[in-house]
C-alpha cells in the first residue's frame, strides 16, 4: 500500500503542519486513517493527506545553492536600517 504524508491544522488560524505518515490504498482511506491516528487527542481541526511519492523535495546537496545565498542579504531585515532615535512609527 502506498505511503501518505499527513498534515494537520492544529487550530483555526494556524497552518497545516506535517504530523507523520501512514499507509493506505486510496486517498479516502488515508484521510480516515489520518483522523484515527493523528487526531485522537483533539490535535487538529483539518487534515491534508498527500502521497509521499508526489512530494518533490530539495536535496541536501541543493542546500548551499538554495539557501546560503539568502545569507548575504541583511538589507531584507528591518534591523539593517539605523534610524535616528527620535523617529517613531517605523
Amino acid at each position: 500500500m502506498p505511503l501518505f504524508e499527513v498534515f494537520v491544522r492544529p487550530r483555526r488560524g494556524l497552518q497545516h503542519q506535517h504530523a507523520g505518515s501512514l499507509r493506505a490504498e486510496d486517498a479516502e482511506l488515508a484521510l480516515q486513517y489520518a483522523r484515527e491516528i493523528y487526531t485522537r487527542r483533539r490535535e487538529g481541526v483539518s487534515l491534508w493527506v498527500v502521497r509521499s511519492s508526489d512530494i518533490t523535495a530539495s536535496q541536501e546537496d541543493d542546500a548551499p545553492m538554495f539557501f546560503d545565498p539568502a545569507d548575504g542579504k541583511p538589507y531584507r531585515d528591518a534591523t539593517f536600517y539605523e534610524l535616528p532615535s527620535k523617529v517613531r512609527g517605523l
Partner: peptide, 11 residues
C-alpha cells in the same frame, strides 16, 4: 488486517 485499521476499529 493492518495496524491503521486496528486504530480505526478501536475508535
Amino acid at each position: 488486517p493492518w495496524l491503521e485499521e486496528d486504530l480505526a476499529m478501536a475508535n
